Simulated assay, not measured.
Amino acid sequence: MPFTFNSDVQLRDVTLRDGLQLTGGLLSVERKVEILRSLLKLGVTDIELGSMARPDMVPPLANTLEVAEQLTDEELKHCWIWVATPRHVEKAAAAGLRNFQYCFSASDSHNKANIGRDTETSLSALPEAVAYTKAVGGEIQLCIATSFTCPFEGIISEQRIIDIANDPRTEGTSDIVICDTLGQAVPEQVRSLITRVREETPARRIVYHGHDTWGLGVANTLAAVQAGATLVDGALGGLGGCPYAPGASGNTSTEDILFALRPQWLTPEIFGELVSLGDDLLAELAEPNRSKAAQGTRSKASAFEWTFANRETTVS
């Protein structure tokens, strides 16, 4: 029997938000729009286009709303924006955005470092953010950072995540995003928590957001999918990290996740174009490309259809 892949899982590319947070280089509005449209054209269904974080705190994301204003309504349907307050939702909605990722940390210490308030304060403000979202016909995700470990408090208990997910104030959120912010989780931890979220909390789409700090990004993503996640996050070339989480490194690579999941739209030719897009961006930002799959395409094993010994001349 031929091997089959799970075609029901979608990838959200987070290059333009989480991917850019730690970069020294800044991208223009025009360049960000170009990258976003290239990803959509290749087949990526969901894109995190930026953040409402303070521009002075995260300069690479300062032009997020300007990017949104350049997009069509159809393009905006595929885009998510990171928010942390009801006011963020209100301002992003005014720019035409309708998909919001309301994020706070399971640990107070990281939430204070990242957002400037404790977790309870963030949770208490969520119903107002949901109300703004519903008023514009949008969708809002419950995004829980440091779902496994915190750089200041260590291991986070599974029950802490379950309790947040079951809190009545999260009612109205369409998805729940479970984040391995530091990339310190292992597959069995991911499988266990995602399973409990699926079985013990209100029915929502489960999203997994992982980092590859300890080399288990793809393995953890696949464990999340096996446990019930149907949307997973990745960034081109493994770019990214959290400026307020010491020890965090890049996101799990978009290229590596797609090579592992093999969605129906992904052909070797499209994959080559995706790799080229990542190569060009990482070179532009003077950042290393951490994608193992991108490295694999350079193999001279020409009998394997996913390699591109002559990719520069055969893939547009």
Results as ranks from 00 to 15, higher is better:
85 T>E: 13
303 A>T: 15
239 L>W: 01
174 S>T: 15
248 A>P: 00
179 C>V: 15
154 G>L: 02
316 S>E: 15
154 G>N: 04
54 R>Q: 05
198 R>C: 09
232 V>G: 06
77 K>L: 15
123 L>V: 08
227 A>F: 12
34 E>S: 10
231 L>E: 10
229 A>M: 11
280 D>Q: 08
26 L>I: 15
12 R>Y: 10
127 P>D: 05
303 A>E: 14
18 D>C: 09
76 L>F: 12
295 Q>T: 09
300 K>V: 15
201 T>E: 06
264 Q>R: 14
47 I>M: 02
86 P>T: 13
23 T>K: 04
49 L>C: 03
98 R>Y: 07
155 I>D: 09
59 P>F: 02
149 T>V: 09
80 W>F: 15
95 A>G: 07
235 A>L: 05
179 C>N: 05
217 G>D: 04
85 T>G: 13
302 S>E: 14
225 V>G: 04
224 A>F: 09
189 Q>R: 09
125 A>D: 08
20 L>F: 06
102 Y>C: 11
63 N>I: 07
183 G>M: 01
66 E>H: 07
66 E>Y: 07
189 Q>N: 08
212 D>I: 09
87 R>C: 12
8 D>Q: 14
253 S>M: 06
295 Q>H: 12
253 S>K: 02
144 I>F: 04
264 Q>M: 11
268 P>S: 08
150 C>H: 03
158 E>R: 05
31 R>F: 03
14 V>C: 12
237 G>W: 07
261 L>K: 01
29 V>N: 03
281 L>N: 00
212 D>S: 10
2 P>M: 13
306 W>M: 08
294 A>N: 02
277 L>I: 03
33 V>K: 08
110 H>E: 01
264 Q>Y: 08
1 M>T: 13
292 K>C: 03
152 F>E: 01
311 R>K: 15
176 I>K: 06
255 E>N: 01
217 G>W: 05
135 A>Y: 02
84 A>Y: 13
57 M>L: 12
293 A>C: 02
13 D>I: 08
195 T>C: 08
257 I>N: 00
202 P>L: 07
69 E>R: 15
266 L>D: 03
72 T>W: 12
161 I>A: 00
72 T>H: 10
206 I>M: 05
212 D>A: 10
277 L>H: 00
233 D>A: 11
261 L>Y: 02
52 M>F: 05
172 G>C: 10
238 G>Y: 05
165 A>Y: 05
185 A>T: 03
5 F>V: 10
54 R>T: 06
251 N>Q: 02
201 T>F: 10
187 P>C: 07
153 E>P: 02
105 S>L: 11
276 S>Q: 13
154 G>H: 02
271 F>D: 05
137 G>R: 07
298 R>Y: 04
235 A>G: 01
204 R>L: 07
33 V>G: 05
246 P>I: 09
209 H>A: 06
79 C>I: 14
181 T>W: 01
195 T>G: 12
119 T>N: 03
44 V>P: 00
25 G>E: 11
149 T>H: 12
104 F>P: 10
300 K>M: 14
256 D>E: 05
49 L>I: 15
182 L>G: 00
286 A>N: 09
153 E>I: 06
185 A>D: 03
292 K>F: 03
62 A>F: 08
222 L>W: 01
1 M>K: 12
96 G>D: 09
106 A>E: 01
12 R>E: 13
36 L>I: 01
290 R>N: 04
16 L>A: 12
89 V>N: 11
228 G>Y: 14
22 L>E: 05
